[in-house]
Nucleic acid binder design. Sequence first.
RNA 1: CGGGGAGUGGCUCAGCCUGGUAGAGCACCUGGUUCGGGACCAGGGGGUCGGAGGUUCAAAUCCUCUCUCCCCGACCA
Length: 589
Amino acid sequence: MHRWSELFIPTLREAPADAEVASHKFLVRAGYIRQLAAGIYSYLFLGTRSFNKIMAIVREEMNRIGQEFYLPLLHPREIWEASGRWALMGDNLFKLKDRKGADLALGFTAEEVMTSIAMKELRSYKQLPQIWYQVAPKFRDEPRPKSGLLRVRQFMMKDAYSFDIDAAGLDVSYKKHYDTYCRIFDRCGLKYMVVEADSGAMGGKESHEFMVRTPAGEDQIVSCDGCNYAANMEKATSKQEAVEDLKREGDGSPLEVHTPGQKTIEDVARYLGVSPKNKIKTLAFMAEEKDAKTGKPRLRAIVVLMRGDHQLNEAKLNAAIAVATRPMDEAEIKALFKSPAGYLGPVGVEWAKDLKKDTGLPVLLVDKALEGRVNLIAGANKENYHLKNLTPGKDFHPTAYADLRAVTAGEGCPSCGNSLRIDTAVEIGHIFKLGYRYSESMGARVLDKNGKEVTPIMGSYGIGIERILTAAVEQSNDENGFWLPPSIAPFQIVVTPVNVKDESLLTAAVDIATRLEAAGFDVILDDRNERPGVKFKDADLVGIPFRITVGNKVTEGTVEVVLRSTREVRDVTITAIVEYFQGVLPAKA
RNA sequence: CGGGGAGUGGCUCAGCCUGGUAGAGCACCUGGUUCGGGACCAGGGGGUCGGAGGUUCAAAUCCUCUCUCCCCGACCA
């Protein structure tokens, strides 16, 4: 039996000064965690218990579809070079040298290790499909660790990898993970949502994120209350109302108009008596990329055209061109457009014809909302002048069209038309159709039915263990502490005799705790010689969903059962206590 | 890396401006009285004031450098 008096549960009356979000404050106050350094935490007794319960659920569900491995955390540089990620990951990868001077990396994820096993061992389609997973620490040298356990440099991740013979097989593996993730998060008692996610620069086809709404989160998600549409901001779209195009003027060729001193979209629209929806917004960026031939870094201009009243989503931009950008400075603008900012437009610049071909020419990315529009107005690349009658494809030639627009709350849902909402959320899981990226680059091959060599197709699937705990705390807390779902709480029930010096109370409490434990419940007995107030406060703080108060009513044979979430109190007879909990808590496996 | 803030017993903070050799509450130890929502009384232990250098008769306090942590921006579980 777990007796509080003998355990190390260092609760704090006050939150540490550097804690900002609720989960951080409470997990420290409740004695779950202590910080060692920025983004590095120790898990104490209660934290570890909860942690282990979460991992047990994850393993149970994952074992239904896959096989658990135990992989090294020390990775030789070679496998990261093979996948091309040694350089790509940059400083995010923790790197170290061994005594011989050889480079190693601490495990960031395990695509490389898993794929190297696949490469060496998988020979035939008959061995597919495979789903391999592990639950292991991950090391990431985050630029900015934050919010307690929400963003850390060492964390526990369940990462799984699937190998299939073809895309149809990957669909099956992907669906298995989708369903398994739902079961895992359901069992962990989280209110989550599944959103379409950006598949990223790696060219995957499909990707979903599992999100929990909380103001502490770092992601913006767009969702619809009218249907089940939900997507990450980086991916979200909305229904566009039809826009009336302007009539062409004159012979329809670009027409220069004098717009003295009119720089902003609103100014120009007002000055010309048109809607911003008929205007083109020209945004100029620079991307640092590698020259395909020489491998040397060089700058490339990226110009984005948006509808005048639309906002650019930078994540979408980054996804579209697979490289990070920064705004152009004044000199760079002048060099490309030969015009001061405020009068920029797409006409008169030679744009790259193909996004894939590396010609070094500036790229003109045009938002899809401008596709098919006619007679638009943009800057003339000449101070105090704009151009009318501009039609994409006729008067200038986009390198590519892309969805670059940021959705705003209240716009129409793309599938049902209802009003969209935007929430902040924390990502607890992510499933991802990887495709051939790793199997290809690392040379994994199997023979198909016809004896032909083919590359297996992969998926990867992650769950952040800390984030499940963090999200659960964020989801259920008040000014006194938090309560966890019974499935992941360090204990399900705390038995609190109000006075341990009272022999009858202590005896009754021990009896109750013993019987509950024998029935398979996780019970802690608060046998500390403390005043009741102290014990109640601690019980409220540490995340245990049920409390049994053993007090004066034992003379009548009853105790109080308190539900932490609602503070609902119910008298239960001592003899029926086990039956009572068998009714409200699922039996332990 | 850029911008902002903070480092003083275990925790939360005061003291710094205007140098004079460190203080409160909580926590901890001992004894006593208490015991249904963080008790009270008495006594007690614990601090190189993040670090280094400098100014000064004298530095927590002024100056310089440095380290660490937190928050806001580009990444992700």
